[in-house]
Every structure is written in C-alpha cells, then in structure tokens.
C-alpha cells in the first residue's frame, strides 16, 4: 500500500479529536472523506501533513514511516479551503514557488509552469497578481502550485467549499483531469455527498474522530449513517410529488 495510517490518535485538552485512525490507500487513487464540521477531518489531514503531531500511531508513506519528518521533508501538500495564494507573487511565480525551492533551472521552471498554466486553462494570466483573478481561477492556481511539485500525497481540505455551484462543477472536472494526468494520490475532504462520490476512487465517512472507509461505492450508499439514503428518499419524494 502507498499510504498506511495505523492507530493514529490525537487529543487536544483531553478531547479525543482523532480516535484510532486506520486506513490504507493505493498509489494514484483519491480517497474522498465525508464528515460533519468538527468531526476531526482537518486534524487528521494536518496530522498526516506533519503540521500537528499525533499522540500515537504511525504514518507510513511509500513504505517509510514519516512521523518524525518535518512537514517540508514529507513531500505532502496540504491545501486549505481558501486558495491562499501568495499575495506578493504573480500567478507564474505562485505556481513556480515549489519548483524554485527545489532549485530547478529557469528554463525547466518556465517550461513546466507554462505547461501547467495551459492545463489550468489560465493562458494569458501569468503576469497577473492574485487579486486580479476570480475565485475559481485562484483555486485553479492553488491546485497547479501544489500539483506541479509532484507531491507524494495531496491533502485537500474542502477545496471547493467557497465556490459557486457552476465553478465548483468545473473545478471537479479539472481536478479529476489533473490528478489523472499527474498521477496524484490524494485525500479529498468534503461536506458534499455528490462531490464525495464523484471525486473519490474510494469513499470514507468520518464521525466523532473515527473514519470508516468503504470497500465500494455501493456499501457507502447503503450505509444509513452517510446520509445518502436520506438524500435519495428526498429526491424520490420530490419526484413523486411532482408527478
């Protein structure tokens, strides 16, 4: 397995935010994680990213235990709900940020960033500053900046939460395309049922600090705790009433 999370526990002031977290993920796959606010999703992602230390347990990435590695050495990128572009850098430099840290040549950086800008459908925007872009464009830059560094693991914390429905749908399509193109392994946290089903190769449901990963989408849909059945009943009811 590419990512193995074993018995991770994390508490803040005697409150168990993450309880014996166990799951595995194969390379180049996306695990969607659904859960209500405050159920421990963000703490789980931050723990895997190295931004929060677990009380116990192991994080194994590509066969190596990475618990003691600094965040900058894990090659794991954690993306917030907001795009958080660097305000002092233009779009080109935002995307090139991780590559410049790796001290690649200017030619290489220009080539790769230009290619990424094209993939993000942001041609002609390279010289613009972040405050000159729309919310959707900024989110695309944020993705591009993360993906271009070819992270071993991409952690997305409700990345489309602040976007309108149309932009959100376009971003979902773009995300699927990019993760396939760059062979990204990712954990995708969302509140949205439909988004969880669309984005994930596997789906997990987090409740009060515990994560259950479903074998298949059918099992996820049939579990009454996930809310899918409730959602289906709602739409079916609406259909019957309208007939």
């Amino acid at each position: 397995m590419f990512l193995e999370i074993k018995d991770i526990v994390k508490s803040f002031h005697n409150e168990h935010v993450v309880k014996t977290l166990n799951f595995q993920l194969e390379a180049h796959q996306t695990l969607s994680i659904l859960g209500k606010s405050g159920c421990g999703k963000t703490t789980m992602l931050k723990t895997i990213a190295g931004l929060v230390s677990p009380d116990s347990g192991s994080i194994i990435l590509n066969g190596e235990r990475i618990n003691d590695k600094k965040p900058s050495e894990r090659n794991i990128v954690y993306l917030y709900q907001e795009d958080l572009l660097f305000p002092h850098l233009n779009i080109f430099e935002n995307i090139a940020f991780g590559l410049r840290l790796k001290k690649l040549s200017n030619t290489d950086i220009t080539e790769r960033v230009s290619q990424m800008i094209k993939s993000l459908e942001l041609e002609g925007q390279a010289k613009k500053m972040p405050n000159q872009l729309s919310g959707g464009q900024r989110q695309r830059v944020s993705f591009g900046r993360a993906i271009i560094t070819e992270p071993s693991l991409l952690l997305l914390d409700e990345p489309f939460g602040s976007l309108d429905a149309g932009t959100r749908q376009r971003m979902q399509v773009l995300f699927k395309k990019l993760t396939k193109e760059y062979q990204i392994t990712s954990l995708f946290v969302t509140h949205d049922l439909k988004e969880a089903v669309l984005m994930g190769d596997k789906i997990g449901y987090m409740h009060k600090g515990q994560l259950k990963v479903y074998e298949g989408k059918k099992e996820f849909i049939n579990d009454p705790n996930t809310g899918v059945q409730h959602e289906i009943a709602f739409w079916d009811g609406l259909k019957v009433n309208s007939d």
């Binding site: 931004l51 900058s72 840290l101």
Partner: peptide, 20 residues
C-alpha cells in the same frame, strides 16, 4: 490580516524550510 501563519504553513508544505 494577510494570514501569514497559514501562508507559512502552506509554504512549508510546498517544501520551504523555516529560513525560506
């Protein structure tokens, strides 16, 4: 106001060491 704490965490996550 500029959320420098979050930007710093993000930069770390993109591979920057504390000095960078």
């Amino acid at each position: 106001n500029e959320r420098l704490d979050e930007l710093s965490i993000l930069a770390q996550s993109l591979g920057a060491n504390p000095r960078q």
